[in-house]
Amino acid sequence: MIPPELLLEKGASSVHANIGEILFHEDSLATFYYQLLNGRVRLSNFLSDGREVLHNVICAHEGFGEGAILDSGVHAVTAITDSPCTILKISSTRFIAMMDEYAFLHRLVAQKIARELHFKLFMIKLIYNRAPEEILSNLIHRLNDNKRLVCQECNRLMLTRQQLANMTGLRVETIIRTMKQMEKDDKLNIIRGKVFIPADGID
């Protein structure tokens, strides 16, 4: 989102994180802005019974943590690496100073927050539908349209069945059963456990 060379010029550091590392916890102070050079990070809440509520998966060249810096200064989610990652991080005070110095950053950050809000409202409406196939079909269609979490070279869905369950509130068993039915209806393909969507998308 923000040019990496600008972040480095303003004092960002590059760090490596292994899979499964927690970058920050829900309700912790927002002391850094983060931007992925490679890898994936998921943003989630965890319920008292241990269940995970998946809000977003951050991919390479995307940033996260700015919302908490600009709001109350406290993170609303927990950030966990989903794969080995290389991350640029810059302190919240330097991030704010950059925003004050470069007007174009305000537009970039505002557009990102608006996209995330739009997606969150889309998910709330989708989940209230409570029809598993329609939930999955619309979610995959939306991700593909946005060129997020769907490989643009091979059309593989880059989310596990567990992550789909955590994102939609459906049971994993429901996800599996629904996907098998969608495969029978030629709405997707399952090859060696990987899910692929048709080249022309899901109707």
Results as ranks from 00 to 15, higher is better:
Lys120His: 06
Thr78Gly: 00
Leu88Arg: 01
Ile96Gln: 11
Asn146Gln: 15
Tyr33His: 11
Tyr128Lys: 04
Ala199Gly: 11
Pro4Val: 05
Glu133Cys: 04
Val195Gln: 07
Gly193Val: 14
Leu188Gly: 05
Arg51Ser: 12
Asn56Glu: 15
Arg42Gly: 00
Gln181Leu: 15
Ile69Arg: 03
His61Gln: 09
Ser14Met: 15
His55Thr: 05
Thr174Cys: 13
Ala76Asn: 08
Asn56Pro: 03
Leu121Cys: 06
Phe46Asp: 05
Ser72His: 06
Glu173Trp: 03
Arg177Val: 10
Val15Met: 13
Lys187Tyr: 12
Glu183Asn: 15
Lys187Asp: 10
Lys112Asn: 11
Thr168Glu: 02
Leu8Ala: 11
Ile90Arg: 06
Lys184Trp: 13
Leu54Tyr: 00
Ile191Phe: 11
His106Trp: 15
Ala12Arg: 07
Gly11Met: 10
Ile96Leu: 09
Thr81Leu: 00
Ile19Ser: 12
Val195Cys: 10
Ile22Trp: 02
Ile140Val: 08
Phe64Met: 01
Lys194Phe: 12
Ile58Met: 00
Gly63Lys: 04
Met123Glu: 01
Leu143Arg: 13
Ile80Arg: 01
Leu143Ser: 09
Glu116Gln: 10
Gly11Arg: 08
Lys120Arg: 14
Asn38Trp: 02
Leu143Met: 08
Val74Ala: 07
Ala60Met: 03
Asn129Phe: 15
His118Thr: 03
Glu5Thr: 09
Val172Pro: 02
Phe122Tyr: 14
Glu101Asn: 14
Ala131Met: 07
Tyr102Cys: 12
Val77Gly: 00
Cys59Trp: 04
Thr78Ile: 04
Lys187Cys: 09
Arg130Trp: 11
Gln35Glu: 02
Leu105Thr: 06
Arg177Gly: 11
Phe64Gln: 00
Glu183Lys: 12
Glu26Gly: 01
Leu117Thr: 07
Gly20Asn: 03
Ile96Asn: 08
Asp200Arg: 09
Lys147Ser: 09
Arg94His: 06
Val172Asp: 01
Lys125Ile: 04
Phe196Leu: 12
Arg171Ala: 09
Leu88Gln: 11
